[in-house]
């Protein structure tokens, strides 16, 4: 029997664009994922703490404000510090093409931007996580 993959979805900072993350939560649920929604206005530290307690397989950050480089740098550092660097880290929202490689260099496993296909996201996670 396959076990559901657990994913924490969060938004960091003052970014209040909620449509994408809400759609994503519902679509992943409908594909058999356990989605923990920790809400808006998070700090990287809070996201890492929640991920540790919830023991998620994946952390997903939605960022449309342009603050992704700063937030993800701090989050990736926190994750390392707390022994969470074995978890999959993905980012979505508004991310310019030229930022994708630098994000990956920080430890982000994949980036999904506007129009990202939900089946592709689910398929990526299923191949990246071994439950």
């Amino acid at each position: 029997m396959t076990q559901p993959i657990r994913i924490l979805l969060a938004k960091i900072g003052l970014d209040t664009h909620t449509i994408g993350i809400t759609v994503l939560a519902k679509e992943l649920r409908d594909r058999g994922f356990e989605v923990i929604f920790s809400g808006l206005k998070q700090t990287p530290e809070k996201v890492a703490h929640a991920a540790l307690q919830e023991d998620v397989d994946v952390i997903g950050v939605s960022c449309l404000s342009g603050g992704h480089m700063t937030h993800l740098k701090v989050l990736a550092e926190k994750m390392k510090e707390m022994g969470l660097d074995d978890r999959i880290l993905i980012v979505g929202g508004v991310v310019p093409e030229e930022d994708v490689e630098p994000l990956k260099a920080l430890g982000v496993d994949q980036v999904f931007t506007m129009g990202a296909n939900m089946d592709d996201i689910a398929a990526f996670l299923r191949s990246a996580v071994s439950v």
Binding site: F37, S38, K46
Partner: peptide, 18 residues
Amino acid sequence: QTGGAVLGDRLRMQDHAL
């Protein structure tokens, strides 16, 4: 149908996140 879930209670307990 899918076994999936959206777990949203944590959202309301943010005062104690750290």
